[in-house]
Design a protein around this nucleic acid. Structure first.
Length: 876
RNA sequence: GCGAGAGUGGCGGAAUGGCAGACGCGCAAGACUUAGGAUCUUGUGGGUAACCGUGGGGGUUCAAGUCCCCCCUCUCGCACCA
């Protein structure tokens, strides 16, 4: 008998079987409930990695499980196929981005097939192909119509040497340089103002925030991150009149969440980018110094400038404003830490009660006035070492005119009201969330379907002219702006309005646009008339279970929510939120090895000598580094392909589900993989040894409920119960698989204790049902081996289409109970009684237990705690 | 600084307030073998023992890894948002 099964043969056999039978194609049905299971689609980078194995294994178990539970399951897959790496490949290797991408898609698709994933490939979506991106363009046009897409000037990272726009991720920090450098040429990156396209996501800020409260099946930390990202804060906008007015700037409006501290505002700060600065300094002696400061600050890239630990710096404008509450003249400064995009780009500075203002005031010797006294009343203005920012505590307003004596919260309220009644400003809400700058000066993305006409200005491409195709004749040099600018065939166009000469928009869309609605496209992927078929969307949406990496906690998941609301308002869907349940799986990590001579080294370049790990090249001792996310640079990669070759897809799947709970990081372990492989071989042999119970035989004896039968039944039904429970409750795959392992161990043990010869008909039936349940429960996790054994045991129809087994509560319970006996909460003994023994009987038996005499002695228990079938505790 | 999460054997990890350490890895002994890094069986938290054990200290409870309070450490995310 074969000791191990041939996973290669079995797996490829079933992969083609499933495919030929179209087993995983799904249609809208009305007879069974729908379930939409979705994993985040991959970027076709070339090869799948262990992170993919993990996320797709998780999704596949969910899809297969729900199918067996009687749902018709939509489980689609596609490609997030636009993006920078394709363009870099074009620059570096001269291969066209489309060719590179399509080759990668083909290769990775074959890799995914080898994993035995239950996708409906008929619904495959590829965002880089015109049949998809024309609808991204269509949606864009609708958003233009509704004012949800618009142009405005905005700063971008610009590499003067490459003459190109850089994404934030392409700007690298470098030691000793004040500001970031280009990832390719290491030139200092500057900020450049460009007209750009934006999505007005801020229009939905409040709804996106409110929606978080209803996403009760999302991980708390994802919701926390989204709430923080949206960042709602309530405050007051207040006008501070300018003294000695120039250039018609009569007042400066500030935003504050702490109106209660306004009597302590001893200066004011403007953002360096604010146009007010120039109006304010015109003709003043300070003008040059201010301009120099602004120039210096605005050269820095954003990440550097806004680093929290950056020193507070500023310059006095020479101008003064009037604090409307105190009538004092306070100096107006320009400060590096004030953000132009937030609030009004101007703040009142209250050094006593804001740490940033405090540091600034100390540096430039500006008065610090205490206007909130702590409950203890111990704060002394001149002795403050840090700002007193506490607001929740019962601080009291002081030095605040008629408002003195009020609590902080009363002060906020009454000062806010006073501002409004005096006409000095208004109470308002501010969000941290900014509009989404979605234009990229890149080739490999969805072209933005807009034109610039000298006569008509900005013109939309008419709907019937979509898609705006990406031109093929584009040189990839890595220089200049968008490569599309260099395509004559693309750029030149006639204006659809006036027929005159016009120029096409050469920017493309951020790839996050493509992935913001792909889950809707899966519902009707081949529709040529509209982006989505509203009926299909109505049937399938929302996604019942979404699975993906935590790295998308904010951007993708927020954008997808935004798009869903936009498309709802366009009448294309009726759901408010796209994803009901969200599972964010952890990273796949592995130990790293460090050789002081050869830096990071592959495990295969090390050897163990006398318990010490040495570098095979230089014999130096290897330091075992931290366990980190798998990465090429750290050389701690495990290859899915090698894994499938050596152990098979079932083992790969099983290990990635077993080694850790899905939401936690998974530490890769080669020996752990072997353990899973061993388990599958144990299953294989177990079924081989028991195959005869599936053969028709005459019954050899009566049908009494033998001990063996009871034990087999109990093990079976306990396992069904446990696995079902673990899957229903937050998909605890690791404990579900542990239960299956335990079940197999039990069956081996039972087999050993009771030889299989001479089984009664009932016992054979019991074994048969045990094996069947084992295979059914294993099916979602290790589908190939389950399918093969299912067939071998005489079943014609695919195991993937069988109903999930149901446990019988009567068979789960044991006929005897083992009850732990405690004295004062400490375990002292254990008794075994017949099931159904009453409380009083059990207590009596326990009291008579030999082992307990030492502890009970002659004392009477003060109290006896009895927990049904669980324990007895004597309190003495 | 703000937010989230986590600290349990040699390791990954289990435990609706009710037998701490399921399951797996590793390790040890044995079996089968010419041999095995295959497979099978048994054992495996610490301690000679009484006992002690879930980061530390308090508390609630008949009973705490689990609930409450304080503290420590680590990881991740955000980070000058007025």
């Amino acid at each position: 008998m074969a000791q191990t099964y041939d996973h290669q043969a079995v797996e490829s056999k079933w992969q083609s079987h499933w495919e030929q039978a179209g087993l995983f194609q799904v249609k809208e049905e009305l007879t069974t409930p729908k379930y939409y299971c979705l994993e985040m689609f991959p970027y076709p980078s070339g090869r799948i990695h262990m992170g993919h194995v993990r996320v797709y294994a998780i999704g596949d178990v969910v899809a297969r499980y729900k199918t067996m539970r009687g749902f018709h399951v939509l489980h689609p897959m596609g490609w997030d196929a636009f993006g920078l790496p394709a363009e870099n490949a074009a620059i570096e290797k001269g291969v066209h981005p489309n060719v590179w991408t399509q080759e990668n898609v083909a290769y990775m698709k074959q890799q995914l097939r080898r994993m035995g994933l239950s996708y409906d490939w008929d619904r495959e979506v590829n965002t880089s192909q015109p049949d998809y991106y024309r609808w991204s363009q269509w949606i864009f046009l609708k958003m233009v119509e509704r004012g949800l897409a618009y142009r405005k000037r905005s700063a971008v990272n610009w590499c003067p040497s490459c003459e190109t726009v850089l994404a934030n991720e392409q700007v690298l920090a470098q030691e000793g340089k004040d500001g970031g450098v280009c990832w390719r040429c290491e030139s200092i990156v500057i900020q450049k103002e460009l007209e750009q396209w934006f999505f007005r996501i801020t229009e939905y800020a409040q709804e996106l925030l409110d929606g978080c409260d209803r996403l009760t099946s999302w991980p708390a930390r994802v919701l926390a991150m989204q709430r923080h990202w949206i960042g709602r804060s309530e405050g007051v906008e207040i006008d501070f009149p300018v003294v000695d007015v120039r250039e018609a700037l009569t007042a400066i409006r500030i935003f504050t969440t702490r109106p209660d501290t306004i009597h302590g505002a001893t200066f004011m700060s403007l953002a360096p980018e604010s146009p007010l600065v120039e109006q304010l300094i015109a003709g003043r002696p300070e003008a040059d110094a201010v301009r120099q400061f602004v120039e210096r600050v605005s050269r820095l890239d954003k990440a550097t400038r806004t680093a929290a630990d950056r020193e507070k710096e500023g310059v006095f404008t020479g101008a003064y404003a009037i604090n409307p509450f105190t009538q004092e003249h306070i100096p107006i400064w320009v400060a590096n830490f004030v953000l132009y995009e937030y609030g009004t780009g101007a703040i009142m500075a209250v050094p006593a009660h804001d740490q940033r203002d405090f540091e600034f005031a100390k540096q430039y010797t500006i008065p610090i006035r205490l206007v909130i006294q702590s409950p203890e009343g111990t704060l002394v203005p001149d002795a403050l070492e840090a700002a007193y920012e506490a607001q929740a505590e019962a601080g009291v307003l002081v030095n605040s005119g008629t408002f003195s004596g009020q609590s902080v919260s009363d002060g906020k309220q009454s000062i806010g009201e006073h501002v409004e009644t005096q006409g000095w400003g208004k109470r308002t809400v501010n969000f941290r969330l900014r509009d989404w700058g979605m234009a990229r000066q890149r080739y490999w993305g969805t072209p933005i379907p807009m034109l610039y006409c000298d006569e008509c200005g900005i013109v939309s491409v008419p709907e019937d002219q979509l898609p705006v195709l990406l031109p093929e004749d584009v040189p990839f040099t890595g220089k200049g702006g968008s490569p599309l600018k260099d395509s004559a065939s693309f750029a030149k166009v006639t204006c659809p309005t006036c027929g005159g000469a016009a120029r096409r928009e050469s920017d493309t869309m951020d790839t996050f646009v493509d992935s913001s609605w792909y889950f809707l496209r899966y519902c009707s992927p081949k529709d040529t008339q509209q982006p989505v078929n509203p009926d299909a969307v109505k049937h399938w949406m929302a996604v019942d279970q979404y699975v993906g990496g935590i790295e998308h906690a904010v951007l993708h998941l927020l954008y997808a929510r935004f798009f869903t609301k936009v498309l709802r308002d366009l009448g294309l869907t009726t759901v408010d939120e796209p994803f009901v349940h969200l599972l964010t799986q952890g990273m796949v990590t592995k130990e790293t090895y460090w050789c002081e001579e050869h830096r990071w080294v592959l495990p295969s370049d090390t050897k163990k000598v006398d318990g010490e790990r040495l570098c095979t090249q230089c014999e130096k001792v290897i330091v075992t580094g931290r366990t980190e996310k798998m990465s090429k640079s750290k050389k701690n990669i495990a290859s899915p392909e090698e894994l499938c070759d050596r152990y098979g897809a079932d083992t790969a799947r099983l290990f990635s589900l077993f080694a850790a709970p899905p939401e936690k990081d998974l530490e890769w372990s080669d020996t752990g993989v072997e353990g899973c492989s061993r388990f599958l071989n144990r299953v294989w042999r177990l079924v081989q040894e028991q195959r005869f119970v599936f053969e028709e035989v005459q019954s050899t004896s009566g049908s009494a409920a033998t001990t063996l039968l009871v034990d087999v039944h109990r093990a079976t039904h306990q396992t069904i119960q446990k696995v079902t429970h673990d899957l229903d409750r937050d998909f605890q795959f690791n404990t579900a698989i542990a239960a299956l392992m335990e079940f197999v161990n039990q069956l081996y043990k039972l087999m050993k204790d009771a030889p299989l010869e001479g089984l009664s008909a009932d016992e054979r039936a019991g074994w048969r049902s045990a094996i069947e349940c084992l295979l059914l429960l294993l099916g979602p996790f290790a589908p190939h081996i389950a399918e093969e054994l299912w067939e071998m045991t005489g079943h014609a129809a695919s195991i993937a289409r069988q109903p999930w087994p149901v446990f019988n509560p009567d068979l789960v319970v044991s006929n005897e109970w083992t009850i732990p006996i405690q004295v004062n909460g400490k375990l002292r003994s254990r008794i075994t009684v017949q099931a159904g023994t009453t409380k009083d009987q059990i207590i009596a038996i326990a009291q008579g237990d030999d082992k307990l005499q030492e502890w009970l002695q002659d004392k009477t228990a003060r109290k006896v705690i009895y927990v049904e079938q669980k324990l007895v505790n004597f309190v003495i």
